[in-house]
């Protein structure tokens, strides 16, 4: 029973702003994320949620503000003061990024096994049998049949591609995963299955995650905390059930009342 009150946060965001010329991508975002937490970022198109995610995941440099990450050695790293190679290393080992379109997060012309094994090979794994075995383990965990290990993702359904993308990220045992609309474009039943999988994995592996979505139902199922964005600003944040059951901000109330069922 670890005392979480004294556990330092995994990610600290301070006054994060990203401008595109005079246009605001996101502005003055501040929050902290602790180990084991899933934070959902919701907003409609143009709210800045994807911009925010990209700044957090080191894919896009912010105009101002800071992102601090606490690594495995308990060092508090200022993300944008690191060298590019250190950042890239972090992205490959400590983090995972699950893209909305699985094609952006997979190598479509190599097999599923190679896709999953790549990160292992990138950090020096040199035993084919072991790499293949580990890839197989992860395929089972994301509920893809083992006999598809040598198939290319082009022959997979959308849901399977997404699950493969997740496996590819998890193989390096990251501590923090960034997800951009992970269930976007999937059939409803496939979405449900994927969310169940994600929930289970997050609990089992003690992951933290930042999940961007426009779908409030996804946040209800997946996120502990919720941030609502509108026009680049965070207009409300709190525990997911509180934000959805007792929304304070007019925009949040509008969002919640607009959906058919939370």
């Amino acid at each position: 029973m670890t005392d979480t009150e004294t556990t330092p946060p995994l990610l600290e965001v301070e006054d994060l702003t990203r401008l595109y010329g005079s246009r605001v991508g996101c502005q003055n975002v501040r929050f902290s994320l602790w180990p084991g937490e899933i934070v959902g970022i919701v907003g409609e198109s143009g709210s800045g949620k994807t911009t925010l995610l990209n700044c957090l995941s080191a894919s896009l440099e912010p105009t101002s503000g800071s992102v601090y990450y606490r690594d495995r050695l308990d060092r508090r790293l200022d993300l944008w003061r690191l060298s590019e190679s250190e950042r890239r290393m972090l992205m490959r080992t400590d983090w995972g990024i699950v893209h909305q379109n699985p094609r952006d997060g997979l190598r479509m012309d190599v097999s599923a096994g190679a896709n999953i094994g790549e990160r292992l090979m990138a950090v020096g794994a040199r035993h084919y049998g072991d790499i293949r075995a580990e890839a197989g383990t992860w395929m089972r965990r994301v509920e893809i049949e083992l006999d598809r290990i040598d198939d290319r993702p082009t022959s997979f359904s959308g849901g399977m591609q997404q699950r493969l993308q997740i496996a590819r990220n998890l193989v390096s045992k990251p501590r923090l995963i960034f997800m951009d609309e992970p269930t976007g474009g999937l059939d409803v039943s496939v979405q449900a299955r994927l969310l169940d999988l994600l929930r289970g994995l997050v609990t089992d592996l003690g992951l933290s995650a930042v999940v961007v979505t426009h779908d409030l139902a996804v946040t209800r199922l997946l996120a502990h905390r919720l941030m609502v964005m509108r026009r680049g600003e965070v207009v409300e944040h709190g525990l997911t059930d509180q934000v959805l059951d007792d929304p304070q901000h007019p925009y949040t109330q509008l969002l919640v009342s607009s959906i058919l069922q939370t």
Binding site: V110, G117, E118, I149, D150
Partner: peptide, 18 residues
């Protein structure tokens, strides 16, 4: 520059798999 060569082993892995 960053010696990110993991992907080269991916090719060799792929050969063995196929």
């Amino acid at each position: 520059a960053l010696a990110e060569y993991g992907v080269m082993h991916v090719k060799l892995y792929e050969d063995i798999a196929r």
